Computed example of a mutant assay.
Amino acid sequence: MNLDVISSSAVTGSTQWHVGPLSRHFPLVVPDLLFFGGSTTRSDRRSEKFQAESIVRLVDQLGIKKFNVVGTSYGGFVAYHVARACGGRVLRAVIASSDVLKGEEDDRMLMERAGAEDVVDLMVPGSTGTLRKLIGLTVYKSPRFVPEFVLRDFVQNIYKTNLKEKVELIKAISLGNKNEFQLTPLSQDVLVIWGDHDRIFPLDKAIKIKEKLGEGARLEIVKNTGHMPNTEDPTRFNELLLDFLMNDPKPSIL
Rank of each mutant, 00 (worst) to 15 (best):
L33I: 15
L33W: 04
L34E: 09
F35R: 08
F36N: 07
F36S: 06
T41P: 09
R42W: 11
R42E: 14
S43T: 15
D44M: 06
R45C: 12
R46G: 00
R46W: 14
K49W: 11
K49H: 14
A52K: 05
A52T: 13
A52H: 09
V56E: 12
V56R: 13
L58P: 05
V59L: 14
D60F: 05
D60E: 15
D60I: 04
Q61E: 14
L62S: 08
G63T: 08
I64E: 09
K66G: 00
K66A: 06
F67A: 02
N68K: 02
G71P: 05
G71C: 02
T72H: 07
S73E: 02
S73N: 12
Y74Q: 09
G75K: 00
F77C: 03
A79L: 08
A79Q: 07
Y80C: 05
Y80F: 14
A83M: 02
A83W: 03
R84L: 11
A85D: 13
A85F: 04
C86D: 01
C86Y: 00
V90Y: 05
L91Q: 14
V94F: 11
V94N: 08
I95Q: 03
I95M: 01
D99Q: 06
D99I: 06
V100K: 02
L101V: 11
K102Y: 09
K102G: 01
G103S: 12
E104L: 12
E105D: 12
D107W: 02
R108N: 06
L110S: 00
A116W: 02
E117F: 01
E117M: 00
D118I: 06
V120D: 01
V120R: 04
M123E: 10
G126N: 08
G126E: 15
G126M: 03
T128P: 05
T128M: 07
G129E: 15
L131Q: 12
K133H: 03
K133L: 13
K133R: 15
K133Q: 13
G136D: 10
L137P: 10
T138N: 04
V139L: 11
Y140M: 03
Y140N: 15
S142A: 15
P143I: 12
R144F: 08
F145H: 12
F145N: 12
F145Q: 09
F145W: 14
V146Y: 03
V146N: 00
E148K: 03
F149I: 13
F149L: 14
L151I: 08
L151D: 05
R152P: 01
F154P: 00
F154G: 00
V155I: 09
